[in-house]
Each structure stands twice: as C-alpha cells, then as structure tokens.
Design a protein around this nucleic acid. Structure first.
Lengths: 250, 250
DNA sequence: GGGCATGTATTTATCATATATAATGCTTGG
DNA sequence: CCAAGCATTATATATGATAAATACATGCCC
C-alpha cells in the first residue's frame, strides 16, 4: 500500500469515509466551488486532492450522479450537471444547498411547496387520520407546549408536528416532505433566530390546525395550515428583504 | 481475469453495465423480490448471481443507497429500507414503482401532489411568466393540437405542456416535478389507453389554462389547471375501481 | 445463574492495480 | 476533402489484499 492517506485525521462526519467524501463533494458542488456546467477534476486528480482511494471516490461520485449533480462519460470526463437537473427534492441536496449556500430565495421557493402541499395534507388528515396518526399529532403538539416552557426543543417539536400531519394525510408523497422540511426548518431557524420580534409560529396557531383535524373539518384544517404557511413565508420574505437591503450575511 | 462474465449477452439497457445492474436491482427491490425490511444477499452472493464484478455491484448498491432503498453496514449486511424511507420523489424510484408494480393507488397519490402543485404553478406562471416561458407554453399547446391531428405524440406533448407551466412558475421545486410527471404520465397512459371513452384531457381544456396565463389571470389559471387535475384524478379513480372490481391486471 | 470481558467470525469498507471500453481527435491514404 | 484507422485519455470493470465494524459465542468472575 503506497498511498499515504489522511484517514486518521478525519472526524466522524458520516458513518465512513465514502460518506465524508460524498458530503464534501456535494457541498463543494452546490456552493459552486467547481462552477456549474463545468468539467470536474478527473478521478485520479480528485483522489490525490482528497486523499481517497479510487473505490471511495467512485462510489461517492456515483451517489452524486444518482442525485443528479454529476454525469460521467468515458473519455469525456465527469461534468457538473446544470442546476435544473439536480434533485432538489433529495433531502441531502436540499440540505447542502440551504446549509452551505444560504439562500432566502430558495427557502422561499421551498415554502411555496409547503404552501401548496401542507394545507391539503391537513385537509386529508381531517378526513382520513386514524387514531395512531392523531396520537402522533397530539404528542407533537405537547412537545411544542413543553418547548414553550423550555422543556423540549422548539425546532424538533415543530418539525414533528408538521411531519405528523403529513403522515396523517395517508399520501406517501406528502410524507416524503419529512426530510425536506427537516432540512429547511433547521436552516430557516438560523434566519429567524437572529431577528428580534421574529419567531416561529405560535403554539396556539398550531393548536388550531390540530383541533380542526380532530374535529374532522377539512376546510378549517386547510385554512389553519395555510395560515401557518403564509406566516412562515412572510417571515422569510422580510428576512430576505432585510438581507438584500443591508447586504448582510446570515 | 478469471471471471467468465456475461457481458456479451446484455442488450444496451443503460449506458453501461453498472446502470443495468442499478435498474435491475431497483426494479427487483420495489417489486418486492427481496421483501422489504429484509436482509439483502451479500456482495459476493449478488456478484455471482448477477455476473457482475464487485466494483459494478458496489457502485450500483451505493446509488440505491443514495435513493433511500438500501442501507449497508459492515458485518451487519445490506438491508432493504422500509418503504417510507424510499425517495419517492426521485424519478428513477417513481418510475420503477409505477412501471413494474403498477399501482393505481400510488398513481392517485401522485396525482394528489399534482393537484396541490400545478394549480399554484399555473397561478405563479400567470403572474411571472416571461416571454420565453410563454413561448414554451404556446409551443407545447401547438404540439398538442398537432397530436390531435396525428402529427405529434399526444403523450410527449401533454408532458411538455405541463412541464412548460411548471417551469414558467419560476419555482425550482415545482420544475422538479418534470421528471416525476414524465414517469407518471407514461404509466397512466397505459391505464387510460385501455378503456373506451376514456382519454386524456382535451386540448381545449389545456387551452383555457394557457389563455388564463397569457391574460395574467392567476385565479383563472389556477382554476383551469385544477379542472385538468380533477379530471385526471377522476379517470384514475374510475380505473382503480374497475380494476379492483374485476381483479383485472393492467 | 447472571453479567461482563474477550475472542472470533463475517460482512462491508477501503486500498491498490491491471485491464477493458468508449469517445474524441488526429492522421493518413484515397 | 473526406473517411478509415490509429492514438489518446477519460471512465468502466475486474480482482486481490487488507482494514474496520459488530453480532455472536465463549468463558470467566462473582
């Protein structure tokens, strides 16, 4: 073994080295380190640069290819795909984008997705939710209340609430937003935390959604959820304007 | 090289052998060949069974892992993830599911996504669409008209129309539905083609959407698009009921 | 007997290298 | 000028050796 690799140095970012390289390359790609629509360093070059073996590198590149970030062809090399081909709906990709290249614009667009989906999910939940799903909603709401008193994490419990409703909708695609919302909320809290007088929606507003679902009132559930979404969107819009006006970094 | 592999036999399914194995394993997984939540054959076993080298197999498995279908850990083996962890919003995964394990239920759930997103996309398009985006919509509509006269493919032009509007919305996540809608429509046509008196929505209904967008009327655009979606959903529901009643295979 | 330390076996993870394949451009002969 | 073939240079594939992780068994101590 002639390769003096840097394995010993690494901190446990992922389960293993391959995932570490995956994260690293993923972040580098979405932050534009290599440009977009540009050629990518060759396999050999990247191995040297990252201190990884070809197996590890190739497997990481294959995962990035599976997420639409790269495309490789013999002799032609590996290329970064244009942004429109990236799987934005892949939680990893969204996380890389939001976490590392913080963009209120993208967050806004994602909230538009939530605005489309979540009210309908709430309506479906009001129609179809079974006992177990309702319990999950109640539990999440209780966590939010506990968080208000400082006994739980506000972010995690907020996520749990929205996820519970998405899953109560019975639509498997809606439930897929789970990972995406987690990525988005973890980022958006960075935005809202910084601003005085700006905070996540109140527990009371969430309570209204839950009440409507328990009352099997789809219209009310949808409206209450829409209210939450519009609220979230307003916050992000304000933050975006502030950022643009001041050129402030988040 | 001692391995007498079966490379010569293969027909050009994908660009290369790795992608062929990817497709094969992906289909096998979603169709339940290996069960769900079950252990997966070991690397060595699968290599033998598929006549693939370890490189090829590992890279395919890594791509499936990236799409949430598998999870591998040393000594513990590779496992099929529970369905809720599959990336349904990955076009490949959706395609495998719809194509090979035809399920009107899943198609219905996907149409619910379209029902949530596309009317809003049409509304956004009515507000923001630039000249180029409008041209794309017009072009797609013209293709649909040509298709009606037999001069173009009805499926492709229908897809193009919906994609044009999603892209005109200016929301990058909405535009992501492109690949998913393509997978879904290609499957749903199998459903509707079989039934007399059942067909895709008319060009006139699509025209209404376009007209509203060109008139910068978000409400009308949204309503017209919702009409298309409800129509599609009704068709699938009918087909589903028929299938369930007759136990018919599609 | 029960709990704990320890060893062992098995599976993926990683590294390394050799060879095959494919795409591209160049060259050369007509 | 063009087309067939050759050279070049990427990725793709095959394979062997070694490392790391962990389920499981084994046996010790109390």
């Amino acid at each position: 073994m002639t390769n003096g690799n840097a394995r010993g140095l690494r901190h446990e970012m992922g389960r293993n080295f391959t995932y570490e390289i995956l994260q690293r390359l993923g972040v580098d790609i979405v932050t534009g380190t290599y440009g977009v629509g540009n050629p990518f360093p060759t396999e050999a070059e990247l191995c040297k640069r990252l201190g990884a073996s070809r197996s590890v590198l190739r497997e990481a590149v294959k995962m990035l290819t599976a997420k639409g970030l790269l495309k490789a062809r013999p002799r032609q090399g590996t290329w970064i795909e244009p942004e429109r081909n990236w799987n934005l709906l892949d939680p990893d990709v969204l996380y890389w984008l939001l976490e590392r290249k913080f963009s209120p614009g993208l967050l806004l667009e994602f909230t538009q997705v939530r605005l489309a989906i979540e009210p309908m999910a709430a309506a479906l939940a009001a129609r179809h939710a079974d006992a177990k799903a309702k319990e999950a909603i109640t539990a999440a709401l209780n966590r939010m209340k506990a968080a208000e008193a400082g006994d739980d994490d506000p972010l995690t419990s907020d996520i749990a609430f929205h996820v519970a409703i998405l899953e109560a909708s019975g639509n498997r695609f809606y439930a897929q937003l789970r990972g995406l919302i987690e990525a988005a909320l973890r980022t958006s809290i960075r935005l809202t935390n910084r601003r005085k007088g700006v905070r996540l929606a109140s527990v009371a507003d969430h309570q209204q959604v839950a009440d409507a679902i328990f009352a099997s009132d789809p219209e009310a559930a949808s409206a209450a959820m829409r209210h939450l979404m519009v609220e979230a969107m307003t916050l992000i819009e304000q933050a975006k304007e502030t950022m643009e006006a001041t050129g402030e970094e988040v």
